[in-house]
Design a binder for these strands. Structure first.
Length: 598
DNA sequence: CCCCCCCC
């Protein structure tokens, strides 16, 4: 077992410099008198493999664990202070190293030996380096140490190991300073993509890097794709240095960083062997689904949601490129009681398993807009995790299983009448203002409306009795009925309904045509019952329609502009009539109020 | 140096 001590760190520290989480070895411990305090204190001899320092003290709270671990213990120093004081005898400045917080990497009995051949850090050395306030130095490791570990993948074969050097937080990186090393976890790696345009062609891939300070995207082009693509693995930690930084384009990345980086031929990427839990996994900036209705098309978002439904895989040809595309739609819902459609492509579409309503966490999905509804689409750079072990995931699992599965949701992807989702809620005024029905195709919407008047004239008609044929028949007045469509005469017919209804919502009123099925729902009678009553009593039609005045329903409407005598008029047909589901309707209203307030 | 991510 090799322990990588942070070689040379003591020289830096004892000169007043900073080193992040240095790894050192404790060679010896000696109990000292602690003056006024009753607490035991220990003086340590510590080594970084290159130098030893005996002016080190252990903070009292660490005593027990270190005593127990014994001599030769290797520790990671999480917090330390190097405190300067003037030696009363010599008059020189000296420093004492106080170890405030340490993590044991390996106890003494496991290490079993002194690592390396450290020499005492001399006073002259300390004074020499104390002169200018030191920036950490670059320390070349012993050559065989890098070779033997075999995890070095750098620009040059004999590039120095970055392992024992000071690392910089990702958030500190900028184009103005190029001497840095980061220690970051790769949280996402794109597929390799090729491009070809007027400026040339090539290939690239990108990866997302995270440390405790933040995140950044790194892209590799051309020959660096070959060099790094297989080497770099998601979830592993790497030391990275010498990439080029430039301003990030927010359109293509949801990462919280104003910069992004590109590998160069100078770049060094080295795997960090130990999994450091201090380096976080992916950093998400979740928004709730309801917020997406107010966000711009093209923006990228992170969401944590439950897969409520999945569509089958669909294959179609892209209009522009002619390529065969594979997709699958996933309906996602979260605690905002709002659902949105997420489109998966290619292999992700094929392999997606929506069984048991898994938690779906996505980072960097693109917001799309279609038919008035919002939707999400996965890009090649989008990270998707199913049932990840993160608090938000457990929280939404609990919510869905206990509450969410029974809630009614507002679907912000709602669009055309043919979609598996419901149509968008629009008021009659909005229908008018938005100019619905002016396109080539009909537009669909739903509204909660009150019936003001249902026309009784020609409420029923006699239709062909053949099940699939609803054509009006001609009464031959001899007990037979002729259907022109079927080119047949029948001894019977069936009643069908047809009526115009003037209906109003809060914003205005409009005339809507209804046919048999919807009129039956409104009237609460079958077409046959209506027809028979009218046949027996000519006054019946007026009475029947009068009963529905001021009744309220949710109407799903189909709107299409049509031309009568050179005059354009919006023709509206009720294609579905449902009783008002107040909980669902209130969800919609609450959603709109929230939209107005945000 | 890409930045296309497609369809209804």
């Amino acid at each position: 077992m090799t322990y990588n001590l942070t070689e040379g760190c003591l020289e830096t520290i004892m000169a007043g410099g900073d080193v992040s989480n240095p790894i050192i070895q404790i060679l010896g411990m000696k109990k000292i008198q602690s003056g006024s305090s009753n607490k035991e204190r220990f003086r340590l001899v510590v080594s970084d493999g290159k130098h030893t320092v005996s002016q080190a003290m252990l903070a009292a709270q660490n005593n027990e664990q270190i005593l127990h671990a014994g001599d030769n213990t290797v520790v990671r120093v999480v917090r330390f202070i190097s405190s300067a004081f003037n030696n009363q005898n010599s008059g020189k400045e000296q420093r004492i190293l106080l170890l405030l917080e340490v993590d044991i990497v390996a106890p003494g009995n496991v290490v079993g030996r002194q690592i390396g051949s450290p020499v005492q850090l001399t006073d002259s050395k300390k004074n020499e380096s104390a002169a200018p306030k030191k920036v950490p130095q670059q320390y070349a490791p012993k050559p065989n140490e890098v070779a033997s570990t075999g995890y070095n993948y750098s620009g040059e074969n004999n590039a120095p190991s970055l392992e024992n050097q000071m690392v910089h937080p990702i958030t500190s990186l900028s184009p103005y300073q190029n001497k840095w090393i980061i220690k970051a976890r790769v949280t996402n790696k794109s597929a390799i993509r090729t491009w070809s345009n007027s400026r040339g062609e090539g290939k690239l891939f990108s990866m997302d890097l995270v440390d405790s300070s933040g995140e950044i995207r790194c892209t590799a082009f051309r020959e660096q794709v070959d060099k790094y693509y297989d080497y770099v693995q998601v979830d592993k930690i790497y030391f990275i240095s010498k990439c080029q930084l430039k301003a990030a384009n927010k359109k293509f990345s949801s990462l919280k960083n104003d910069y992004e980086m590109t590998t160069t031929s100078e770049t060094i990427i080295q795997e960090c062997q130990s999994d450091d839990t201090a380096i976080p996994t992916t950093c998400f900036n979740f928004v709730t689904i309801d917020k997406i209705s107010n966000m711009e098309e093209g923006a990228l978002v992170d969401i944590c949601a439950i897969c409520k439904n999945v569509s089958d895989v669909q294959v179609f040809q892209a209009k522009t490129t002619g390529r065969d595309l594979t997709k699958r739609d996933v309906a996602l819902v979260d605690q905002s009681n709002t659902s949105i459609n997420l489109t998966l492509w290619g292999n992700e579409a094929l392999s997606f398993d929506g069984i048991n309503n898994p938690v779906v966490v996505i980072k960097g999905a693109k917001i799309g807009e279609f038919g008035g509804g919002k939707s999400l689409s996965c890009l090649s750079s989008t990270l998707m995790k199913i049932n990840p072990d993160i608090p938000e995931s457990f929280r939404i699992r609990g919510w869905y299983d206990q509450v969410g599965c029974n809630e009614n949701v507002v679907d912000i992807s709602a669009k055309s009448g043919l979609s598996p989702f419901s149509s968008p809620w629009l008021s009659f005024k909005e229908v008018k203002d938005k100019g619905l029905g002016n396109g080539d195709k009909a537009d669909y919407y739903q509204t909660m409306a009150t019936i003001l008047l249902m026309r009784s004239e020609n409420l029923t008609y006699k239709a062909c009795p053949t099940e699939s044929c609803n054509k009006k028949v001609i009464d031959l007045e001899n007990g037979m009925f002729r259907c022109e469509k079927c080119n047949r005469e029948y001894p019977n017919f069936k009643y069908r309904l047809l009526s115009s209804i003037n209906m109003a919502d809060w914003s205005g009123n409009t005339w809507v045509s209804t046919f048999t099925s919807e009129a039956e729902t409104i009237l609460g009678m079958t077409a046959q019952e209506v027809g028979e009553q009218i046949e027996n009593n000519s006054e019946a039609a007026a009475n029947i329609v009068e009963r529905v005045n001021f009744k309220q329903f949710v109407f799903k409407c189909r709107a299409k502009m049509e031309t009568y005598n050179d005059e354009a008029r919006l023709k509206t047909i009720a294609v579905e009539v449902k009783p008002v589901h107040f909980k669902e309707y209130n969800n919609y209203l609450i959603g709109r109020i929230k939209q107005l307030m945000s």
